[in-house]
Design a protein around this nucleic acid. Structure first.
Lengths: 408, 408
DNA sequence: CAAGTTAGTTTATCGCTTGAACTATATAAG
DNA sequence: CTTATATAGTTCAAGCGATAAACTAACTTG
């Protein structure tokens, strides 16, 4: 059902609305249009008025606020019509940026993007974080972030806030990692604020797959609705519906790695049985393909697997095909539950796509015919930096949706 | 992630906000509090001001509008404090109501509830709608609805609008049934408006399981987040998250009947393989239990099954236990995808609960340990009339969220 | 019956959008 | 070079809804 949306929804649902809410809404409306405009094309106040439906007077007043807050910048004159006074172009202030950070199993990373999403600086440091105390990892990351922030500053970009992506479940709205199996963290409260001392927008925490999903949303033509499936040691997922990340009441929605794909299957690290991860996770594929893991890095093992596939190893081919079929079952079930219409494969699923793709589509056609068209099963276009870009992008997105947070 | 909600969201997302939106928001806020108040307990303006955070002046003005619109009514004096001037109690106008209607395989039904959800009149007419043209069914229903409307009118209840529930997929926001397998309808546009000529709120169309889910939400203590699973000829579902029906981008979310529970399973009417419905649908259970369907009504066959279960028939017991285990697998997968935390079983699942319950919980513990606590697997408390009550309730809900639609 | 207490209304003020009038700056025509 | 026309952006009065404070209303207590 498409019930009439509530007329206004103040920041806290169920709170009184007043004129400040109207202003916040319209600030976001105008700023949102600027963000959506193609790079290099600068909208004018008059065009914003036409696009948003606001009057020129309101747009002028709103733009003034956004200029004062340092979010927008005027950029010369814009000639598009033949006659009449030229308008003044507006763009996101290129001297403001946000930091994306990532903690993963074998590295930490930090990077700064401008508000328009361009990567300005990025640094990755290899570090074995497996079973490392969270405090030690955070200290190393704080140091890395500090350096990256200085580098951005030297390039004239001021960091307004940051986002951190971790490979684990995150309690929504808090800085707590409920569980990160591959890091060995359980109910770990992270002091994210110290990564970026005294930034106006603070630092937020994200699940890695969710962040990567948002990066695909922002940087790729996958549409407004898709399920991102991240293939790492674990199998994670990020569900994007109507251009919004759907996290569910506890923040655990989209955990596609633990959909049951075989009731007779193997036990899973989550305590369940026959989860997708037990067939399509990296360890499962390596093991089924007969690839050695011990004493080798994941990158090396993956290279071995690709070699075996290229050489036509039956074990390797079967392992990957099985993973593809299991993905098809999982996607079939997910499409029923959440009306998923498109799938984006990331991590090792993107790497193995040429072997996975066929079995996945066959399996999908068998278990949920008509639910997704084959061309809606795609691979990631953002790649490695997805989690980092997504974490940074989420901070920008939050700013765009609530620009008043940066006002004096 | 729990990003900051947009400050205001005018009726059309991306539309300018103005002070009328603030008013709409606050009308809904005040009215929502009145609706939430326990039956028989009448809030006063002063209490509403305290509860909503609005000032007394604003509440007075808003209540005046709601009285003028005929949505609220003043009801004597309310003494709760010891001292001071007594407040004037407010309640939903009992002379206004909405109609819920239902088309199902072997009957049509119509009933009127007051705005507070009490059933005033209800009439059910047996009718075999299987493979009946939609126009003929709608004509019969229009006649039934007209009579029920008159009966309600005679009792002093004026019908403001209506909701119709059908056992099929409904295109959100339209009056089109995409597919209703058990009625034999495909892409059928229904002229719902003629069911209730000239009502101010019109007539909306709902999926049966979704409507029933909303009825459970309104009339039962199941909480704000649950998956309702309806056991009928088909297996349907309604996903309630944060007290909202979650329908997904195409309106097909919660279609739990076609989650894959056995990749080696039987073909399904949806074209898929091993769907929940192939194990736990009514026909599947009857067939596995060796119950005759031909020449008998569904009610009779169900009575036969209950008899067989009571008599300890191994085939019947096994059939129902298998259905329970399949439900466990489906719930496990659904809990991963949409972070479902509770399940409400309706239709034949409620009837068979004493045999289903154990196998379902065992299966759930095997496939998704810790995802749902056992006490969060519940049975429907609304029963038969769920779809009808839910359809009516949805209309009330839409009115509460946008009361200005009833203003002059 | 006066004092105290709570309910609800009245009034002045503020902030934000709106629409119309106005100013500013360009191109095109004479 | 001047004038007409077209478009961009600002200014200003008006309207509306929320707020806060003052005020009126109605009841209890002593």
């Amino acid at each position: 059902m498409a019930s009439t949306a509530p007329a206004t929804a103040p920041s806290d649902a169920g709170a009184p609305g007043n004129m400040a809410d109207v202003r916040r809404n319209n600030l976001a409306l105008v700023l949102g249009r600027v963000v959506q405009s193609p790079a290099g094309f600068h909208l004018t106040r008059a065009q914003l008025a036409a696009a948003t439906g606001l009057t020129k007077a309101s747009v002028s007043s709103i733009v003034l606020d956004l200029l004062d807050a340092g979010i927008l910048r005027e950029v010369g004159l814009s000639r598009q019509g033949e006659r009449g006074r030229p308008g003044v172009g507006l763009e996101l202030n290129p001297s403001r940026g946000v930091m994306g950070m990532e903690i993963n199993v074998d590295y930490i990373a930090a990077g700064v993007t401008s508000l328009s999403g361009e990567l300005v600086v990025k640094e990755v440091r290899e570090r074995d974080n497996r079973d490392s105390a969270s405090g030690a990892v955070m200290s190393a990351l704080a140091e890395l972030a500090s350096g990256v922030r200085l580098a951005a500053s030297a390039l004239g970009v001021d960091v307004l806030g940051g986002g951190l992506a971790v490979p684990g479940l995150v309690e929504p709205g808090s800085s707590t990692v409920t569980v990160a199996p591959n890091l060995g963290w359980v109910d770990t409260k992270l002091d994210v604020a110290r990564l970026l001392p005294s930034v106006p927008l603070g630092v937020s925490l994200f699940n890695e797959a969710n962040a990567a999903a948002l990066a695909e949303l922002a940087h790729s033509p996958h549409g407004r609705d898709f399920l991102y499936i991240s293939g790492e040691v674990g199998v994670g997922g990020g569900l994007v519906l109507n251009s919004e990340l759907f996290t569910g009441p506890e923040g655990n929605a989209g955990e596609v790695g633990h959909i049951v794909v075989d009731p007779e299957g193997a036990p899973c690290s989550c305590g369940g049985t026959g989860c997708l991860e037990t067939v399509a996770g990296q360890d499962a594929i390596f093991s089924a393909a007969g690839i050695t893991v011990k004493g080798r890095t994941r990158t090396e093992s993956m290279a071995d697997l690709l070699g075996a596939l290229a050489a036509g190893s039956p074990a390797a081919l079967t392992a990957v095909q099985q993973a593809g079929r299991a993905l098809g079952v999982a996607v079939a079930s997910a499409s029923r539950v959440a009306n998923v219409r498109a799938v984006v494969l990331g991590g090792h699923f993107a790497v193995l796509d040429q072997w996975l793709h066929g079995p996945l589509l066959e399996s999908l056609a068998k278990y949920a015919p008509g639910a997704l068209s084959p061309e809606h099963v795609m691979t990631s276009t953002v790649g490695d930096a997805g989690a980092l870009l997504g974490a940074a992008g989420s901070v920008v997105r939050a700013l765009v949706e609530a620009p008043h947070r940066l006002q004096a």
